[in-house]
Simulated assay, not measured.
Amino acid sequence: MKKSWLLLLSLLILAGCGKKQEVVQIGAFEKFQEPFLRISFSHPQGWQLQQDGPKIGFYSSLEAINKFNPYSVEGKDAARVIVNMDKMDTLKTLDEIVRSLNSDLTSSGFEVSSPVAKKVSDLDGKLLHYRGALDSKNIISGDEVVAVKDSMLYTIIFEGFNKMYEGSKVVLDSVLSSLHLPSFAAAAPGVDPAVPAEEMEVFENNFLKISYPANFQPSPASVKDPVQFALNIYGYRQDSGVFIDVRPAQGLTLEKVVEQNAARFKETSRGSATIDGVPATYLNYTGGKGISSRVYFLVKNDKFYRIIYNYYQPMKGDFQPVFDKMVASIKTK
């Protein structure tokens, strides 16, 4: 949430002194659905999508994407809305998050209003309105809404330059009223929420299919060549979960893939397995303090699949059998 841009420290410019630019009229809305994240909401038709894993943004024009990262006064005024899901490493209450956000915005030069209660799907959230001057003719205004469920932080941001903020504010209302968030199986009273649920769900795309505990969350990760796809599946504990990535095998055999990659891991032992009907090799290796780790190598259809799982050693009996079950469920494509 930390802002990296610097704004003017005071709001000396009134809205009437801003640039006189035509405000984009909001017409029809359409539904965005992310099947991997199991999230959906309505956004303005024709706005440009930019997605980075669980961070989903819609911008009022293609050029608008370059207006916000960092803020730029060049070009036409623009607006954007961002929906983001973030797994917290350290659990925080909603009030703690709001205080931290307020501090970040204030230190970046924004004038911040008092938090207002706001619903985020079925969760209780808080909205912070902020406003700041970029120069004598440009003002950026925004609303950031945050909500918390267990270790997951949900953030919705709406921002606009000058008159684009008021002219497009209906976008935030539309997102909040239509937002559907993934549901997680709740732990029974007295049950450690970190323990994988017995109920399993299925993630599937054009690279693979895998079963996972209902209280875990599959989240596609950003990739760079030569990686074609990457997936994180984690639950309550951030040190215990499964990571998978897929890249071209380029004609290499399993033996050659293992030979080229084994040195990257502090191997303690190795073994063989069968995944989706083909041989696989796994290496047990040293992870972080108190963490046990294993990586599988699999080659099929000229694709190289790497499957890694880590778990908190004192909870081996809870995690390892479930992670083994997840690996055994994998179907490659």
Rank of each mutant, 00 (worst) to 15 (best):
Met326Tyr: 04
Tyr309Asp: 04
Val146Asp: 01
Ala147Ser: 09
Leu181Arg: 07
Asp173Met: 03
Ala280Glu: 03
Phe41Lys: 00
Val257Lys: 10
Phe41Gly: 05
Arg294Leu: 05
Val175Ile: 02
Gln51Asn: 08
Gln21Ile: 10
Phe216Ala: 11
Thr286Phe: 12
Thr268Ile: 08
Tyr165Trp: 11
Val81Gly: 13
Asn102Thr: 12
Ile244Met: 03
Val170Ser: 13
Lys303Pro: 00
Ala263Ile: 07
Ser4Lys: 02
Asp135Tyr: 13
Ala262Phe: 07
Leu9Thr: 06
Leu62Ile: 06
Val258Cys: 08
Glu166Thr: 09
Asp302Ser: 07
Lys333Arg: 14
Phe265Asn: 08
Val24Asn: 14
Pro182Thr: 00
Pro44His: 15
Pro196Ile: 02
Ile307Arg: 01
Lys76Asp: 07
Ser329Gly: 07
Gly288Asn: 12
Val81His: 13
Ala262Pro: 02
Leu7Glu: 08
Pro213Cys: 01
Gly190Ile: 10
Arg237Leu: 15
Tyr236Leu: 08
Met164Thr: 07
Ile244Cys: 07
Leu9Ala: 11
Ile157Cys: 10
Asp124Val: 10
Ser103Phe: 14
Leu62Gly: 09
Ile307Asp: 07
Glu111Lys: 11
Leu179Pro: 02
Ala194Tyr: 05
Ser107Phe: 15
Phe161Arg: 12
Met200Ser: 05
Asn310Ile: 01
Trp47Thr: 04
Pro182Gly: 02
Asp122Thr: 14
Ser141Arg: 04
Asn284His: 13
Gln51Tyr: 00
Pro213Gln: 05
Phe203Arg: 03
Asn138Pro: 05
Tyr130His: 12
Lys331Trp: 00
Ser107Asn: 15
Ser108Glu: 12
Leu127Thr: 11
Gly271Thr: 12
Ser103Trp: 08
Asp104Ile: 06
Ile233Thr: 08
Asp173Glu: 11
Ser141His: 04
Arg99Asn: 15
Gln33Arg: 08
Gly57His: 07
Ala262Ser: 15
Lys149Ile: 08
Glu201Ala: 09
Asp276Gln: 01
Arg247Phe: 10
Val23Asn: 13
Leu181Pro: 02
Pro213His: 01
Arg264Glu: 10
Ser178Arg: 05
Arg80Glu: 01
Leu176Pro: 02
Tyr212Phe: 13
Phe319Tyr: 15
Gly317Phe: 08
Ser178Val: 01
Ser292Pro: 03
Pro54Tyr: 01
Lys137Val: 06
Leu14Met: 05
Ala186Leu: 12
Ser211Asp: 14
Arg99Trp: 02
Ser293Gly: 09
Thr286Cys: 06
Asn206Cys: 06
Phe36Gly: 09
Lys163Ile: 00
Gly287Pro: 01
Ile233Val: 13
Asn69Ile: 11
Ser178Asp: 00
Ser72Thr: 14
Ser272His: 10
Ser113Cys: 03
Lys19Trp: 04
Pro54Cys: 02
Gln238Glu: 03
Gly18Met: 08
Tyr305Met: 09
Lys118Ser: 15
Ala273His: 11
Ala194Met: 13
Thr268Met: 09
Lys325Gln: 12
Leu12Thr: 07
Phe68Gln: 09
Gln228Asp: 04
Leu252His: 14
Lys3Gly: 03
Ser329Arg: 04
Leu6Pro: 00
Tyr59Thr: 01
Ala230Pro: 00
Val23Trp: 09
Ser100Asn: 11
Ala230Tyr: 00
Trp47Gly: 05
Asp324Cys: 02
Tyr282Glu: 12
Ile13Pro: 00
Ser329Gln: 06
Lys325Thr: 06
Val145Trp: 01
Lys209Asp: 04
Ser178Asn: 03
Glu30Arg: 04
Arg294Cys: 01
